[in-house]
């Protein structure tokens, strides 16, 4: 492992322990910092478990509120050892599963028309349109995976968690997490290869 990676890891650890100390001293203030720090990751994962952006926002908000309620019951000792990001993402996963169970009980309204999320950076109109198509297609492909594989792939490749952290979120051994990721990717590959739009996107890069 290179020194740079160690540095990055160490900085992230320091940020986490600062957050934990903040939560111990001032729960609401610390929680505001926690949300600021992890909102992007939580939302990006929530987005892959939701029909549209508004559902994703609701799901992410719901998960944060559940996390807050849990934190209220934790003493300082528990807070100081809590690994915040995987803990938050495990709550998000449970929240998403509960929401999916509720949705299955009552039929959903037809999906509203919506545009894809704006990609970062100044892309051309053509690039934007193409990237939007890719996002939509890939999202639809992901939705066809079994839940555990989809979660593993999203955590590993959409938000870039290491396999150890993916395993922590899924509550399984690292080897199992790794195999969920690779099995998910293996199932995605043929689907992706059948979509010319996605292949071209890859070649252009």
């Amino acid at each position: 492992m290179s020194g740079i990676v160690d540095d990055v890891g160490q900085r992230a650890d320091e940020a986490e322990s600062r957050l934990r100390a903040h939560l111990v001293s001032d729960l609401d203030g610390g929680f505001a910092a926690l949300v600021r720090e992890h909102r992007g990751v939580v939302y990006s994962v929530a987005r892959q478990f939701s029909r549209d952006r508004s559902d994703a926002e609701d799901l992410a908000a719901d998960a944060f509120l559940r996390a807050y309620r849990a934190l209220r019951g934790y003493d300082a000792g528990r807070l100081e050892t809590l690994r915040l990001r995987p803990w938050l993402l495990a709550i998000l996963r449970n929240t998403a599963r509960n929401a999916a169970r509720d949705r299955a009980r009552r039929p959903a309204p037809p999906p509203a028309f919506e545009t894809a999320d704006e990609p970062a950076g100044g892309a051309s109109v053509e690039q934007r349109a193409e990237s939007a198509d890719v996002q939509r297609e890939l999202g639809a492909l992901l939705a066809q995976l079994p839940e555990v594989q989809r979660t593993a792939v999203v955590l590993r490749h959409v938000v870039g968690l290491g396999t150890a952290e993916v395993a922590e979120v899924l509550g399984c051994p690292e080897g199992t997490a790794k195999s969920h990721v690779s099995r998910g990717l293996r199932r995605l590959r043929p689907l992706v290869e059948n979509r010319p739009g996605l292949r071209e996107e890859g070649r252009n890069r």
Binding site: R39, G40, V42, Y43, S44, R47, Q48, E57, A60, D117, E118, P119, A120, S131, V134, Q135, L138, G139, V153, V154, H157, V158, V159, G160, V192, L198, E201, G202
Partner: peptide, 9 residues
């Protein structure tokens, strides 16, 4: 392509 699915909250 998967990495491109991440977005701002």
């Amino acid at each position: 392509a998967l990495a491109g699915l991440a977005g701002e909250a």
